[in-house]
C-alpha cells in the first residue's frame, strides 16, 4: 500500500477512441468490446514501479462527448499527466487533436506531461492515420507518442508507465513542485526522507548539465 509518489492522470480525446478501454486494460487487464458511454468522469487506480520505487497512479477517465467538455476542463489543473487519445481508424479523431491540445494547454499547469496515443493499432486493415503522422504531430507539439491496442493490450502498460517515467524524471530535475498537491503529484506517506538528498543530487547533476 505504501508508495513513494502518487501521480494523477487524466485521459482525454474524442468519444469512442477507447479511453475507458485503455484504463480498463491497464487496471483490470481485460477488454470490454461493447462501447459503454462514459458519463462525466470515472476513476481507476494502479500501482507501478519505476526505478525501484512504488508509484501509485490515480487515473480519471473523462467523457469524450462535446457536452461534457466543460466538466472535463476542471480536471486539467490538478493532473500531472494526460493521455491524449485518438483512433487510428478514424481520421476525424486525429484532426481534433489540436483542439484538445489547446484546451489542455490552456487549463493545465505548464509542466503536465502529455502522451499522445493512437489507439486501436490491432485494426491495421482499417487504418486511416499513418503512424508517421502521429509521430510528426507529437514531434511538432513536444509530446511523447505511442500506438496502442486496448484490445490486445499492446503498448498499454508502456503508455501509462512511460508517462510516469517522464513525470518522474521531471521531479528528479526539480521541474515539478512536489509539495504543491495541485500539480497532481503527492509524496507517499512512507517516503524515505534519507533518499531525497540522493535523488536531488542526481537531479542536480541533470540540471547542471542543462545549465552548462
Amino acid at each position: 500500500m505504501a508508495y513513494a509518489y502518487l501521480f494523477k492522470y487524466i485521459i482525454i480525446g474524442d468519444t469512442g477512441v477507447g479511453k475507458s478501454c485503455l484504463l480498463l486494460q491497464f487496471t483490470d487487464k481485460r477488454f470490454q468490446p461493447v462501447h459503454d458511454l462514459t458519463i462525466g468522469v470515472e476513476f481507476g487506480a494502479r500501482m507501478i514501479t519505476i526505478d525501484g520505487k512504488q508509484i501509485k497512479l490515480q487515473i480519471w477517465d473523462t467523457a469524450g462527448q462535446e457536452s461534457f467538455r466543460s466538466i472535463t476542463r476542471s480536471y486539467y489543473r490538478g493532473a500531472a499527466g494526460a493521455l491524449l487519445v485518438y483512433d487510428i481508424t478514424r481520421r476525424d479523431t486525429f484532426n481534433h487533436l489540436t483542439t484538445w491540445l489547446e484546451d489542455a494547454r490552456q487549463h493545465s499547469n505548464s509542466n503536465m506531461v502529455i502522451m499522445l496515443i493512437g489507439n486501436k493499432s490491432d485494426l491495421e486493415s482499417r487504418r486511416e492515420v499513418k503512424k508517421e503522422e502521429g509521430e510528426a504531430f507529437a514531434r511538432e507539439h513536444g509530446l511523447i507518442f505511442m500506438e496502442t491496442s486496448a484490445k490486445t493490450a499492446s503498448n498499454v502498460e508502456e503508455a501509462f508507465i512511460n508517462t510516469a517515467k517522464e513525470i518522474y524524471e521531471k521531479i528528479q530535475e526539480g521541474v515539478f513542485d512536489i509539495n504543491n498537491e495541485a500539480n497532481g503529484i503527492k509524496i507517499g506517506p512512507q517516503h524515505p526522507t534519507t533518499n531525497s538528498p540522493l535523488s536531488t543530487s542526481q537531479g542536480g547533476q541533470h540540471a547542471g548539465g542543462g545549465c552548462c
Binding site: K8, G40, V41, F43, W60, I71, S74, Y75, G78, E181
Partner: peptide
C-alpha cells in the same frame, strides 16, 4: 450532483 462531487473529490 455527481459531476461536481467528483471534481471536489479530485481536488483532494
Amino acid at each position: 450532483n455527481a459531476a461536481i462531487q467528483k471534481i471536489v473529490a479530485f481536488e483532494n
